[in-house]
Simulated scan of single mutants.
Amino acid sequence: MEKVKKAYSCEIDILRGFATILVVLGHILQYSMMQNEAFYNDFLFKVIYSFHMPLFMCISGFLFKHSYDKYGKKTYIYRQLLSLGKVILIWNAIQWILNCLLGVYSFDCIVDVMKSAYTAFSGLWYIWALLIIQVVVASVYMKKYAWVIYILMMLILSLIPIKIVSFAYLTAWMLPFFLLGLYLSETQKLPSYVISKFMFFAVFIMFIAGVAFYRPNMFVYKSGMNIFDSQYGIILQIGIIFYRVIVALLGIVVVKELLLWCYKKNENSRFIKWLIKISHYSLHIYILQRILIETLAYQLIRGKSLSSNVVWFDWIVAPVMSVVFCKVLAEILNSLNIRYKNILHFLFGR
């Protein structure tokens, strides 16, 4: 039993560690090609953004049941509200102050100040989405009407305009993947290497083909989740969402199979150990990269080209930068955690 638990823990850590690197790599690609939103047509960017956040949410859903059973509904909800709520307030406040110092906002009146604060505190959309989903799912978990609540929740969040709540539609997009992870944990289907080589290659080819036909309007950031107020019409919008879900699921399966194959080949390899260490600080890295990459680095490189060779930058330079960034940050955080564990817990939650 202990070996099974250890293997399950390592499998989750490996997937989460790799997904963390993909977050950093995706943002490096995005903020190096901001002009005319060229990143939407970049193949590697499309590969990453087609599945990496759904993978994160699927892992969170998979881990939900263990925490819920351990603490119970009321304590679980309280812990999540306190932990993630605190993270959202602290780091969005830091982001707002930093943006003010960098001159990102221009203030002509008190309304501008309020608008800038609202924009800043809407940041860290994934943590907002995770908090909302966890609280709602925990509130109705094991209830007969739970699926009705989930469907209504997804519909309502999809209809909320971006100008009012910028992360609402993204929460709607993430909900099905959280529920998928929860279903896998309930059925005790560990993320093990289970499909045949033939099936893997078939899934891999379908995923690459799906990404190849990915158009800018297929990204959730472009077309959203609202089927009733879509510029593409109800039928086409439903088709876009369905296509988006299928490609995300294919990407999750491909990455899962590849990583767990590496793990089974040599579970003590340096690569596997790196991913596990990075996974322990996935939330920390997600938060800090927003400041270091999305804000500070972007202010330095804005309007500049990092490389004249896109292929070289995409497949060599950017991946190396993202791995080094995550590895160095994980090592620094690990050292700080030994000396200042309580401070890190306060800043980044439990």
Rank of each mutant, 00 (worst) to 15 (best):
V211F: 01
I149H: 08
E186Q: 14
M199C: 13
H52Y: 07
G61S: 02
F178E: 10
Y40W: 09
I301C: 08
M1Q: 11
G17C: 03
K3G: 06
K327L: 11
L81I: 10
A248M: 00
Y40V: 15
V220K: 09
I162C: 07
L249C: 06
A212S: 11
A297H: 04
F18Q: 03
I291D: 09
Y281K: 15
W128G: 11
L250Y: 04
G224P: 09
Y183H: 14
F178V: 13
L329S: 06
D112T: 03
V23Y: 00
A248F: 00
V4I: 15
R79L: 02
F207S: 02
A248S: 02
K115F: 01
M174F: 04
T187R: 10
L15S: 05
V311A: 14
Y214H: 13
M199H: 12
A138G: 06
R79S: 01
K46I: 02
I238E: 13
I291M: 14
V136E: 07
D13V: 05
I235V: 11
W261P: 05
Y221E: 15
I208L: 15
L288V: 02
A7E: 03
D108F: 04
V87T: 01
Y150L: 06
L155H: 12
L102H: 05
D42I: 05
I127E: 01
S32V: 10
S166C: 06
L131G: 02
I151F: 14
A146S: 13
Y40I: 11
M114P: 12
W261D: 03
W261T: 08
I285S: 00
G349Y: 00
I48C: 05
I94T: 05
P319F: 04
C100L: 15
M206P: 06
Y126L: 00
E331A: 07
D13I: 03
K46C: 08
L22W: 01
A330I: 10
F45I: 03
L275F: 04
Y145L: 05
L98Y: 10
K273P: 03
K222G: 05
Y232E: 09
P176A: 09
F242E: 09
G181N: 01
Q299N: 11
G210K: 03
V140F: 14
I12E: 01
F219Y: 13
R302F: 14
S192L: 07
F177M: 00
I238D: 07
K256D: 04
Y298V: 01
V203A: 14
Y31C: 12
P54N: 02
L131H: 02
K264F: 10
I276H: 04
V4S: 14
S223Y: 14
E294K: 10
V113R: 08
R302M: 08
N342L: 08
K189D: 13
K5T: 09
R79E: 02
V254E: 03
Q188T: 12
K5V: 12
I164Y: 14
I12H: 02
V317G: 01
F200T: 08
N334Q: 11
S67L: 10
N99T: 06
M34W: 15
A248H: 00
R79N: 01
V203I: 14
L260I: 10
S307V: 04
V137D: 07
Y126I: 00
L98E: 04
N309F: 11
V245W: 07
I293F: 08
E294W: 13
V323C: 12
Y8T: 15
Y232R: 12
M154S: 13
F219V: 12
